[in-house]
């Protein structure tokens, strides 16, 4: 308004009034941000900063004091046990991520593309969530009688004559942890992918078919690329949850498979705050890297 050259003085006056009002509204906007900013500072920024700070504290057997030292960091990176836990966490995370994708994508494809009725689609997605109506612990522990040496899987396989001796690697190994994690988290992969697939305009597929593309080409060139944002969101969900896991590995590996999360639990349990903070920082950095990498693959802001 102010850049218009007006000769009438009253109009100039109203113009400046208008712009000062606009400035007021601009300032007012920042107040709207305040509650959110306050929340984030109180419950995210400060705790994160505290965690980094505490990780440099000096740890004695039963106490921790605020003298700064890098001792906990040195211990973490020079200990074979902890480095193994870091690599194991990475390995399990990648395995679970791959399996949830391989199992989840076809399910999502069926729900999102082959089911055209909106109602049926919702019903099927709700069905996927039904296991969440029972407690997390029960879902995890229920795998024990399934996978044990004399568990359901072994009994059925033996009765069918497929195996003679029970498979022992099924329980209290990395395999059982992977099975448990995949079963719990696969639905977080299915949901976002099915959502993206459901949003694909059917006309696009018709157009591609009309141009002579085969079903496989249409999947490769149209459907899959358009579902990638869903895959990225699903992968972020699964990654964040699997990387921070401690209950499932503890319950299904008999405490043999320790992830970073389990180490934090143990260290906090024995009041090793500084060391737990180191592991916490490492875990946070790993998660941040993973999420950044996934967001690099797919530009979510553009796609959603």
């Amino acid at each position: 308004m102010t850049d218009i050259n007006v000769s009438n003085p009253t109009e100039i006056k109203s113009g400046t009034q208008g712009s000062s009002l606009k400035a007021k509204i601009d300032k007012g906007r920042y107040f709207l941000l305040a509650p959110g900013v306050l929340w984030m500072v109180l419950f995210l920024i400060i705790p994160l900063a505290m965690m980094v700070y505490v990780s440099f504290w000096t740890q004695t057997t039963f106490a921790v004091n605020s003298t700064l030292t890098t001792k906990s960091w040195v211990t973490f990176f020079s200990s074979e046990t902890y480095m193994n836990a870091l690599f194991r966490t990475g390995r399990l995370w990648l395995t679970v991520l791959a399996l949830t994708f391989i199992i989840g994508y076809p399910v999502a494809l069926y729900v999102g593309q082959l089911i055209r009725s909106e109602t049926l689609r919702t019903i099927l997605l709700v069905t996927c969530v039904i296991p969440f109506w029972t407690s997390f612990l029960i879902r995890v522990l229920a795998w024990r009688p399934m996978l044990g040496k004399e568990g359901a899987v072994n009994i059925v396989l033996q009765k069918l004559g497929i195996i003679n001796t029970p498979i022992e690697v099924l329980l209290f190994t990395e395999v059982s942890v992977v099975i448990g994690l995949v079963q719990i988290y696969v639905v977080f992969m299915v949901g976002p992918i099915a959502f993206m697939l459901g949003r694909i305009d059917h006309n696009l597929i018709e157009a591609a078919r009309d141009l002579g593309a085969s079903t496989w080409t249409i999947f490769r060139k149209i459907i899959f690329p358009l579902s990638l944002p869903g895959v990225a969101v699903g992968a972020i969900f699964v990654s964040v949850m699997v990387l921070g896991e401690f209950a499932t590995p503890a319950a299904l590996s008999g405490r043999k498979v320790n992830l970073l999360g389990n180490i934090i639990v143990t260290q906090v349990g024995s009041l090793k705050w500084a060391f737990a903070a180191v592991v916490g920082v490492v875990l946070t950095v790993v998660m941040a890297l993973v999420i950044t990498a996934l967001l690099r693959v797919v530009n979510l802001r553009k796609e959603l």
């Binding site: 696009l204 018709e206 591609a208 358009l226």
Partner: peptide
């Protein structure tokens, strides 16, 4: 076949 809503691959 040219569709009404273009149906371009986004």
């Amino acid at each position: 076949f040219v569709q009404q809503k273009y149906a371009l691959f986004p």
